[in-house]
């Protein structure tokens, strides 16, 4: 089957590549663009480890075709923070033990990032409901929720200080 020209804006950078339409977005990101932050957990649309942001939506990139993503703007965990300059969510996950093995973490943080864009002041229940598409085998979720609540508080007080 012939390959198609695919254009993506990933973490603010324009990328062009040739891929078969049937390739899954997660593999385009990991294997063609070397962005190995998003992980493959289940490959069956259940675990959320592959979550990235596509055109302002949190999506499971194992269930998006390369062709479908053509023209899209994508943010992965690599676009949120760097080891030297962590995103507030990354800082809070670190501080509040929001991760153990870390496998689910890029998906958790990318999803939480979108959740806080849409609802900057979530209740604990709203965080749990909004994170329901992301599974973690290690933490028992308690500290993930704590980290996200702490990040929301931090982002809100930074916003207030700026005003």
């Amino acid at each position: 089957m012939s390959k198609m020209h695919i254009k993506l804006t990933v973490n603010g950078k324009e990328e062009e590549l040739l891929a078969e339409p049937r390739e899954l977005l997660i593999y385009v990101l990991r294997e063609r663009l070397n962005l190995t932050g998003p992980h493959v957990g289940c490959e069956t649309s259940h675990c959320g480890a592959c979550t990235v942001e596509m055109n302002g939506k949190s999506v499971k990139s194992c269930t998006v075709l390369a062709a479908q993503a053509n023209g899209a703007e994508i943010t992965t965990i690599e676009g949120l923070g760097t080891p030297d300059e962590l995103h507030v969510l990354q800082k809070m996950f670190k501080e509040h033990h929001g991760l153990q093995c870390g496998y689910c973490t890029p998906g958790m943080i990318t999803r939480a990032h979108r959740l806080l864009q849409e609802n900057p002041n979530p209740s604990e229940e709203e965080v749990r409901f909004g994170m329901a598409g992301n599974l973690c085998r290690c933490t028992g979720y308690q500290n993930i929720v704590k980290s996200i609540m702490a990040a929301a508080a931090e982002m809100n007080s930074a916003k207030e200080a700026a005003e």
Partner: peptide, 11 residues
């Protein structure tokens, strides 16, 4: 878990 090949259209 790779879908079978297909021709893609975006009308």
């Amino acid at each position: 878990m790779i879908p079978p090949a297909f021709e893609y259209h975006r009308p």
